[in-house]
Write a protein that binds this DNA or RNA. Structure first.
Lengths: 236, 236
DNA sequence: TTAAATATCAATCTTAAGGTTTAGACAAAA
DNA sequence: TTTTGTCTAAACCTTAAGATTGATATTTAA
């Protein structure tokens, strides 16, 4: 068994859980560790957010199954404070969608309540070292969900061949400007060509993409991965 | 130490690596395992794809740092075949962007060449059980990158207030049709109102979103989460 | 070396898009 | 009750967008 580490000061922890019994249970559990210190507890998300603002703890252990304001929203709001506080999601369910959303908004870890207490301690230690901790079982579920989501997207785009491949370089440049809402005149100025030339290119683009106007062309481009081919772009 | 498992039949494996020495090394390593069988090897991606089509192996170990067609593209193409073949990316670098892209397109595992041979065997076993395997170090890097990407997105959208909130219900309906590339006439027909009414709505939308034309309005809508507020939408 | 693809531009035309003003009907709130 | 917001609509106008034809220079591949 690995021993808890020493970080100079005690690790300041805030617990958030609407179940009082459970709250006490975790608190005792953590306080066994000599260098962990539960400095505050909260029974709902709004109080928790205020406590985090006030104490700026190292760790927040957040039950994400709470009434009123749900835990995920609370995590979002805490993350938006841009503190050094690291948030660990705590829940009874290993729902991959929940895991995905928690990690998406910035949780540094995700622990099931049914997991052994040793795992919770271990997670805190890992996360205090700047790592992100997902138990391997949950990690696997996360990835399945992650890939499924992407596959659905990919299937939509590759079910029929991607017409973008038929565009010439120049046409791609023009389309890129269209996807930024630039007018004919604007495109002409930016590419140092005449407006009529731009129109010619745009018409060719329409034909190749089998659309009727620029809005549809832009939509086609977006839906078929014209932009951010390398870089990921995510609309929440 | 855990022993290799028995799957009834031998696990059929294809190796892809442009470095012949390394190819042989891995082959010998794997053939030590009595229930693993390297049925073919390839030195470039195109040959690999054909071999996969022909033999439909259980596992493909793919070096993703190859000249000509790169490994990631090859993985994409193999995934598109919709076989039961599980692909493991193999590379010398732990570049988080590479890891992310490999997992995105469907790799079931990602292993560094510098890792111990036992880990490779373990990865294959885990993946053969339907799991996804990322060594914890790489997993951590993946999540950092994942969260960074989302955070940038979130910052972009919440840095200034979302003007979409000022739209009325009717205006939202109109905007939704605009984001589908529908013309004034089309909107009028779909909403059973006159074309001039549509124009009024559209003009109001432009003012509220502070844009000049429908393309910009559509782009604003997409970038600010007008659609898919709940469901995740990913543009590759 | 031809043919094909690409990039450039003009002229002309039609239509869709966008701007502005005004106004009636209706419901909800003050 | 009056005001406010919303939805509806017309009339008028300007400009941007899109379609079509034809033409030239350049590059690339057959």
């Amino acid at each position: 068994m690995r021993r808890t580490m020493d970080y100079g000061k005690k690790v300041k922890i805030i617990l958030v859980d609407d179940n009082y019994e459970h709250l006490l249970g975790i608190k005792e559990l953590i306080n066994i560790e000599t260098n962990f210190d539960v400095i505050a507890t909260a029974a709902n998300a709004n109080i928790a957010i205020n406590l985090v603002k006030k104490y700026q703890p190292d760790i927040v252990l957040m039950d994400i199954n709470m009434p009123e304001k749900d835990g995920l929203t609370a995590i979002s709001e805490m993350e938006r404070l841009n503190l050094d506080t690291k948030i660990i999601a705590l829940t009874g369910y290993d729902d991959p969608d929940l895991i995905f959303r928690a990690m998406k908004i910035g949780a540094k870890g995700y622990i099931l309540k049914t997991m052994a207490s040793a795992q919770l301690i271990y997670a805190i230690e890992e996360i205090m070292q700047g790592k992100i901790y997902l138990p391997s079982g949950l990690s696997s579920r996360f990835f399945e969900y992650f890939q499924k989501t992407f596959k659905e997207e990919t299937n939509n785009t590759t079910s029929q061949e991607n017409l973008l491949q038929f565009l010439t370089q120049r046409e791609e440049e023009v389309l890129e400007l269209l996807t930024q809402g630039v007018t004919y005149k604007g495109v002409a100025q930016k590419l140092f060509i005449s407006e009529t030339t731009v129109k010619t290119h745009v018409n060719n683009i329409f034909q190749k993409l089998q659309v009727n106007d620029r809005t549809q062309a832009v939509l086609y481009a977006i839906n078929n991965g014209f932009m951010n081919r390398k870089k990921l772009k995510i609309a929440i």
